[in-house]
Design a protein around this nucleic acid. Structure first.
Lengths: 386, 386
DNA sequence: CCGAGTCTTTGGATCGTTCATATGAACGAT
DNA sequence: ATCGTTCATATGAACGATCCAAAGACTCGG
């Protein structure tokens, strides 16, 4: 048993010569094509035949040779994706999480993920070129899109298949598909949440303007504050990412004549800096001043007090990216997919229930919130307090 | 020009039908094999022929189809590697850096990196199995080896090619090749460095025993301390990784009857916690108490005071891993490669020159440092105390 | 019992490359 | 001029899968 095979095929155990479709066919007593159908279109086979083939497949441990398959079908079933340092540009581990999610999603869709590391965009385009010419991938997932990004145009002109994580900043009618997280919606939700806690002077610690993500997150704070009728003047401070930077920004606003009682931050690093500034004053974050960060980086849940933060729905993003890319690969869709997903606010102690608050302010705030429209957390909140 | 081709081949610009070796051969007026030789063994061609073929290759932008190549040569030129969360188990971004370095090294050796994400080792073995059966990779790089690791045995039995980053903990005569960083050498260097600064009571904040990496780093501190004649009793504290954890451990040692004046830490997270504990006491890290961390995570250089830390030579590790793996792939070497690389101590303010120190000590210390040779500050120190 | 129609299975050709082998050219020595 | 030797290039056959067109098996009404 299990020794030599029908038709003169070698031993099962011979690893050097791994099973081919021909061996499976011989063992099951059918033709190669039938085995192929069993794998790729089982419905075409009569149940008994399928079962018999399946037995042979299992016994031999057969799986189609990827190279042979690729050669014939012209589909590699591989997705290329640039690898970015996980601590890249204040993304708080989001790209790291995305990469994992992409691996999982790709694999469960029968695709492999090929990663490469590049210094800059030009370098990246060179790698694209290489991979495309060698037929090593079916398509790409782009990350970290930005103003003046040369990659999408290059890929489009080339006729390559790809999807971007990130909007085509500064381009209205980009012809490619993309998925992104709605930063403005996130910071708006943060404002609503803080308003529901009774805050009326809500500041924003942002990155310098000009970068898409920075402007987006800023816009949400501004829009929602205005909608609530809150002042925004003198409540905005901007600087590069970083803990030290956040500390300085927060100190700047907190020491002003009319300081904010809550801070929405463009990143967790900035937010952690803000927490420091609050500690510096001998205050307690979440009490005197509430803080909300962005990206829910791993530290957010570890530090004391826990940092409330906006978590990007990375798994959903990965799903959409892969799903969209597969559609694009299987023949371009009628028109590009453009999807914005909402981040989710994870509330922790840095913006939790306040123990001490002035009753008057609370009441008036809650009145506003009961106005119809967007916000809900306040409404329920109000009833409970009344 | 550049329109239709000799021999009825399609237009150059036709991307759907990318150039094949046949088209290049036709254009250069040679046979397929000659083009193949031009690519794979240029020395076999007469210089003029090579030049002519090269022109045709460049004009058409030809690169060998990877799938066809793989099918024929049975070599995928792809390396598989598991993707770990970058904030995994207190590795302080080392695996993240390693992955980047692997990408670079692999690519410059003509290999691609295929990454996959798995929940646990069993899951990982399943992916190995899938990739091997599908002939999708030539070999693997294992990371995060540990006691009772089932992966190496499985791969060996299977006859798969792989190299591990990390020693086969708890296995003397493992039959596979591995590269690792000598943690003990690192912590020993930290002790020497601190001794050179005049410290004689050097504590160690570690992880719970039983894990290879933890024991390794602990051993270096212990060995080197003993060599200098320093006491180690009451200077060791261990707990799980984390900032909070490090803070508690440091507090424990610092509040003891005979507290340490310096702390070597098993990780940067623990070290950062130690810095906090030092601040808590109103002290200044690098002055009253010096601290050295491990892995030189990105935060180490950002925080104030900067954290001295032991940096793993990740690029060198990646180089060795790929080099070794390629050797293994091209036919197993006579015997497994086993390499230990030394980490490099990056000195920052947390263990810099101390401003205030007792003059007597300073003088004697400095005297010793001016002595030639390796570093015996400890020995001298001891004498001086006697 | 036959033939049309449907479902299942088959054999050969093919994807683009490299391997093994064969052929041709060049050269110096006899 | 002949021969062996080396080097450069050409030819046909793989590699292992899927596509294609067509043959075989089966069902069912006439």
């Amino acid at each position: 048993m299990g020794g030599t095979e029908v038709d003169g095929y070698e031993r099962l155990e011979d690893l050097a010569r791994r099973p081919t479709i021909g061996m499976v066919a011989a063992r099951a007593g059918v033709s190669r094509q039938t085995v192929s159908n069993a794998v790729n279109a089982p419905s075409r086979l009569r149940p008994e035949t399928l079962a018999a083939v399946q037995v042979a497949i299992d016994e031999l441990g057969y799986r189609p040779n990827q190279a042979a398959r690729t050669l014939r079908t012209q589909a590699t079933r591989v997705i290329g994706c640039r690898l970015l340092p996980s601590n890249y540009g204040g993304t708080g581990g989001v790209l790291d999480r995305l990469l994992h999610a992409l691996c999982d999603t790709a694999r469960s869709n029968g695709y492999d993920l090929l990663t490469f590391s590049t210094r800059d965009d030009d370098d990246e385009i060179e790698v694209y070129d290489d991979l495309l010419r060698r037929h090593a991938v079916d398509g790409f997932v782009l990350t970290n899109t930005h103003h003046g990004d040369a990659r999408p145009d290059w890929l489009l002109e080339r006729g390559a298949r790809f999807v971007a994580f990130g909007r085509p900043w500064g381009r209205r009618g980009a012809q490619h598909s993309w998925i992104d997280v709605d930063g403005a919606k996130g910071t708006a939700a943060a404002v609503s949440h803080l308003a529901a806690l009774g805050h009326t002077r809500i500041g924003f610690l942002g990155w310098p303007p000009g970068i898409g993500v920075a402007d987006d997150r800023l816009a949400g704070w501004e829009r929602q504050s205005r909608q609530f009728g809150f002042n925004t003047r003198g409540l905005l401070a901007q600087a590069e990412d970083g803990i030290a930077s956040g500390r300085a920004l927060a100190e700047e606003l907190l020491s002003s004549s009319r300081p904010p009682t809550a801070l929405v931050c463009v990143s967790d690093a900035i937010a952690i800096g803000a927490l420091r500034a609050i500690e510096d004053r001998g205050w307690q974050a979440g009490q005197e001043v509430s803080v909300v960060g962005f990206d829910d980086s791993p530290v957010a849940s570890v530090i004391r007090p826990g940092l409330s933060s906006l978590r990007q729905p990375v798994e959903a993003v990965a799903n959409q990216l892969v799903e969209t890319l597969l559609t694009v690969i299987s023949g371009a869709p009628a028109r590009p997919v453009r999807t914005l997903l909402a981040p989710r606010l994870v509330v922790r102690d840095s913006s939790g229930e306040r123990r001490h608050r002035s009753p008057g302010v609370t009441a008036s705030i809650l009145k506003r919130q009961s106005q119809p429209g967007t916000m809900r957390p306040g409404t329920t909140r109000k009833e409970e307090l009344a």
